[in-house]
Design a binder for these strands. Structure first.
Length: 103
DNA sequence: AGATTGACCGTGT
DNA sequence: GACACGGCCAATC
């Protein structure tokens, strides 16, 4: 049941993001071996259903913007989860200066 | 196999 | 800040 090497890589990487930190789609794509495939990462995440295994809420847009979320009320729920995990929001966006994830 | 879609990103108006 | 464009890539129809 392999949808693709890329998606599997993405899943593995996202699972690695520590609580309280966030990574951008572009960053995940880069770590997955496909720089510039941020859009593809979004595609994979939207189809993702394993929220129990894959913390897709820790993946945000460039600059710490919330793009979307396939559960709850969307970005609204996403923001709640992130805040409860310790992520700092600044003017509707994530304070990457403190919550940006780095491998 | 070809076309469409989407949780992207940067730049310009 | 809102909207438009073009480039990018994988999944899906």
């Amino acid at each position: 049941m392999r949808k693709g090497v890329f998606s599997e890589r993405v899943y593995e990487i996202v699972k690695t993001i520590p609580k309280g930190k966030v990574a951008t789609y572009g960053q995940v794509a880069r770590l997955a071996g496909r720089p510039g495939a941020g859009r593809a990462v979004g595609t994979v995440m939207s189809k993702n259903t394993d929220t129990k295994q894959i913390p897709c809420h820790r993946v945000v847009g460039a600059g710490g913007t919330l793009n979307g979320y396939a559960f709850g009320t969307g970005t609204d729920t996403k923001r709640s989860i992130l805040e409860s995990e310790g992520v700092i929001f600044k003017n509707g966006k994530i304070d990457l200066a403190d919550s940006a994830w780095s491998k």
